Computed example of a mutant assay.
Amino acid sequence: MSNKAPRPRREDFRRSYTLGTRWGDHDSYGHVQNVVYYSFFDSAITQFLVEQGTLDIDNSPVIGLIVESSCTFFSSITFPDQVTIGLRIAHLGNSSARYELGVFRNGESEASALGYVVYVYVDRASNKPVAIPQLVRDELLTLVD
């Protein structure tokens, strides 16, 4: 699993979250399945938003919906590895944010994978795009690269 794209380093990210892999995360080839990386991304972003008090999962009137995502893989992760998900904002628009996420295996300094997720913020009731609320924007700005 190699890619010619540069491998980000831990220090390239503003915030990080550590998660454990689970027995069922890997496939018959012995590496964590691709879909699990997207779960890592979603968990890190949601944890950040909840910790900052900008997302009440059940009641926030404005929510972020994923409209685009991608992942580039550099090296394998397997069970029982610990992964650290680095988090930063690469672009902050009026109603959207592009999160970039580095996946780091155990204590390694270079990313095993690099992904991005684009959220569009919408009114929960109408599902129509809205400006990112100022409280959310202020917290997202702490992640801007």
Rank of each mutant, 00 (worst) to 15 (best):
F74D: 10
V118Q: 13
S126R: 11
H26S: 04
Y119Q: 15
T84C: 07
I63L: 11
L114A: 14
G53Y: 12
V36Q: 05
S95V: 12
A97G: 10
V120W: 00
S95F: 03
R10P: 01
S126I: 10
V35Q: 06
F13T: 00
G107F: 02
E100M: 04
T18H: 05
L114G: 10
S70D: 13
E108Q: 15
F13M: 01
Q82F: 11
G115N: 13
F13N: 02
V103I: 14
M1D: 00
Y37S: 08
E51Q: 13
Q52D: 04
F104V: 01
D138T: 12
F74H: 12
H91C: 09
I85Q: 06
A113N: 02
P129I: 07
V35K: 07
V118W: 13
F13G: 03
A113M: 04
F13A: 01
I85W: 10
S39I: 12
D25V: 05
D145M: 02
P129N: 08
P133F: 12
I45R: 13
A97W: 00
I132P: 09
P129G: 11
Q47R: 13
S60H: 04
R88Q: 14
W23A: 04
L87H: 08
E139V: 05
R137C: 03
D56A: 13
V120H: 00
R15I: 00
N127L: 14
T18V: 08
Y37I: 02
V144C: 06
Q52F: 03
S28T: 14
F74N: 09
N59A: 14
S43F: 14
I66V: 14
F40D: 01
S96M: 09
F73E: 03
V67D: 09
Q82Y: 05
A131H: 07
V50L: 06
F74Q: 09
L55D: 05
I57F: 13
Y38L: 14
Q82E: 10
D145E: 13
D138L: 06
P129H: 07
V50C: 05
R105M: 12
